[in-house]
Design a protein around this nucleic acid. Structure first.
Lengths: 327, 327
DNA sequence: CTAGGTGCAAATAATTTGCAGAGGC
DNA sequence: GCCTCTGCAAATTATTTGCACCTAG
């Protein structure tokens, strides 16, 4: 399985007062070629096997340098020694750690992350990074049968796969939402807006599906690998609850408000995960989509204001001011 | 602040092949009197200050013994050495760790815990314990002003406070739910059941409020201390959404189903947190309540079945079987 | 009386540091 | 040429172990 994955542009790496050197390059090269979480000493062994004459201290010092340079991340599984993982094309994540075979598997949970943010805020604590580790026994150690895994080499792909799956679910539910909203909106202008947005969602959807197919082509096993990215909100599409509400029957104004809320959530979703991609096509796709969702939201907000204004001519304003209802 | 908190019954501690000894007692005593997370060496220093002639190795060995005995828990904040915290009257929890002053603050989040369980299940991983650590800067280090904290000595009280607050919120919303349900139920039998449950909720509420007042009396600062236990579901009362649904108008049958669902959630809440209390009054109160909620639920289920049966005499069953709808 | 606990000193293990020489910019 | 990197060995820090002796059950 792909030992030939692209390496970061080493030439550009030049962190805080650091100098490049043949030794560092050597160590970095060996490190980036690995898939597991290496300890300093394990890396030292690997390096010395390729090229004699590199001291243990240099490996330790290079590892520190890599961490400050952002090429590597230090992880501590409570074994009394540190391990390191490459951060290039490898989003920040959490770990499942098998107490039996000592291997670790990675995951990301947007829900856990946002709860952590909320808790930190409630305690007036400024968080810089968090560690979530689940210790226990892995499936393989319990059942004995080999399972499809996520290792260092596949994390990036699996992450992209999950992000795309959620994005597709979101677009699908968005498409359904706007189609339904367009059908039930009485106001002509409003209907046009919804129709236009439905069209855009359809377009996005096609782009995402194309991207998804391209991704799958890169690794035949990719579709069968376990979930990496957990996010309840987007799992069934962020617009799903909005579409649900529409089905119960709402008026034009309410439909607009629901749309605004959904687009806001969707924008946040794409932005959050777009930022997590390392510079790659995926990042671009996500950030562009995030912008589009914001544009959609703005469009809906304008439409909502216009509608309220037009209504205002007939009946006096007796609702909460727009500022309070929007956002 | 209370250095006189009750200590566990040392005489009972006799873990896996372990012997008691004067030295162990000595070390255990010093350990349990501390509030912070001590490292082995810090504990050694404290012990030797009180009584000379205790070796460092004994402290290390005793610490291991305490961990297997369940008196202490090992925690690792990534400093390259382990720290230990007493587990007596100290529920399992997570940590906020200040990178500046190196102090740690504790919290518990039922939401995070259940997400972790879900993730482990999705990966077919059998979790045994999990670590959640939020690193960053604490309020005191950022603003300079002293803040009310949760330390080792207060954790138990704060935990009890939060659990009680949530229990009270739950009872309040339950009372509202049953009062409303009784008022809107047409069926006479059903109405009587709801009235009876409303009465019981009122009683529970009084008990809980009394307990809460007693708890607050133990520490004048207790009410102002930060939140320890985070749990979105119960924060505004588990019956809140149920009561909301009633307000929108439902029939007798639906009201019963909603009640059943709420009692189920409530039972789980009390059970989960009752189990977290170390043996104390609080544990009793919670577990008893958990049982009562289960009894309520059973009562509602019986009533639901009876209602459906009586209805069946008039119109033929055209709904999903009870088994699928209840639980 | 005997398994297990204890102190001390020595052993390990992971990581850091002092220093003289080598190498990048 | 200056400043940083590097290797090696020695130092440091956290924790464990061997061993002769002691103590609870």
């Amino acid at each position: 399985m792909g030992t030939d994955r692209p390496l970061p542009d080493l030439a550009t790496l030049r962190p805080a007062g650091g100098k490049r050197s043949s030794k560092r390059d050597q160590i970095l090269n060996v490190f980036l070629r690995q898939q597991a979480h290496l300890s300093a000493d394990e890396l030292f062994e690997l390096v010395r096997r390729e090229k004699a004459g590199i001291g243990r201290a240099t490996v330790y010092r290079t590892l520190q340098w890599m961490v400050t340079a952002g090429v590597a991340r230090k992880v501590d599984f409570g074994e009394g020694r540190s391990r390191f993982e490459p951060s290039y094309r490898h989003p920040r994540h959490f770990h499942l750690i098998c107490a039996n075979c000592h291997r670790s598997s990675e995951f990301l949970s947007s829900d856990v992350e946002s709860l952590i943010e909320e808790i930190a805020a409630a305690r007036h604590f400024a968080p810089s990074q968090s560690v979530v580790q689940i210790f226990g026994t892995c499936e393989e150690c319990r059942t004995g049968k080999q399972t499809s895994t996520i290792d260092g080499t596949t994390t990036e792909l699996v992450f992209a796969r999950d992000a795309l799956r959620m994005a597709i679910a979101t677009e699908r539910s968005g498409l359904e939402f706007y189609t339904r909203a367009a059908a039930m909106t009485k106001d002509v202008r409003g209907r046009t807006v919804f129709e236009r947005l439905a069209g855009e969602e359809r377009e996005h959807l096609a782009t995402l599906q194309k991207r998804y197919r391209e991704l799958i082509a890169q690794d035949p096993q990719l579709e069968s690998r376990p979930t990496f990215l957990f996010f309840k909100g987007a799992a069934s599409g962020l617009f799903a609850t909005g579409a649900e509400q529409l089905r119960k029957g709402v008026n034009d104004e309410q439909a607009l408000l629901i749309g605004i809320e959904c687009e806001r959530g969707s924008h946040e979703f794409f932005k959050r995960y777009g930022e997590r991609f390392e510079d790659s096509e995926g990042k671009q796709v996500f950030l562009e989509f995030a912008d589009e969702e914001r544009a959609h939201r703005d469009l809906l907000v304008r439409e909502y204001r216009s509608l309220r204004e037009r209504q205002g001519r007939h009946r006096r304003s007796r609702r909460t001011p727009i500022a309070k209802r929007v956002r």
